[in-house]
Design a protein around this nucleic acid. Structure first.
Length: 99
DNA sequence: AGCGTGATTGTTGGT
DNA sequence: ACCAACAATCACGCT
């Protein structure tokens, strides 16, 4: 049973919010944005989204490789962010306690 | 130890 | 600034 998503997708919860990482789709969209939009000048988001989604899944694992690859790298990027973010939290915490 | 959840990522276009 | 479908994510925190 999938989670129940109500509405909106943004919300803050962390003070430093290291922000997650991008997903393969984000990289894929980055590339498609240039192409899809080039082939569909003036294409609206609704069309792009559906069209992209279809093609995205239509891509072979080999095609997703570059995107997944980037996604992986991006994840690591986030890893560092969160690491630094968590560290920062600890630092603040210690500061307060030491005072 | 295992589980669920939420938050987030980026595109475009319009209001 | 925000929102919407589209897809992935996946680390975090909790008990």
């Amino acid at each position: 049973m999938p989670p129940k998503k109500e509405k909106s997708t943004r919300k803050k919860k962390d003070p430093n919010a290291p922000k997650r990482a991008l997903s393969a789709y984000m990289f894929f969209a980055n590339a498609q944005r240039d192409i899809v939009r080039a082939e569909n000048p003036g294409i609206a988001f609704g069309q792009i989204g559906k069209l992209l989604g279809e093609k995205w899944k239509s891509m072979n694992a080999e095609d997703r490789e570059p995107y997944e690859n980037k996604a992986e790298a991006d994840k690591k990027r986030y890893e560092l962010e969160k690491a630094d973010y968590l560290k920062r939290k600890e630092n603040e915490y210690l500061e307060k306690h030491e005072a």
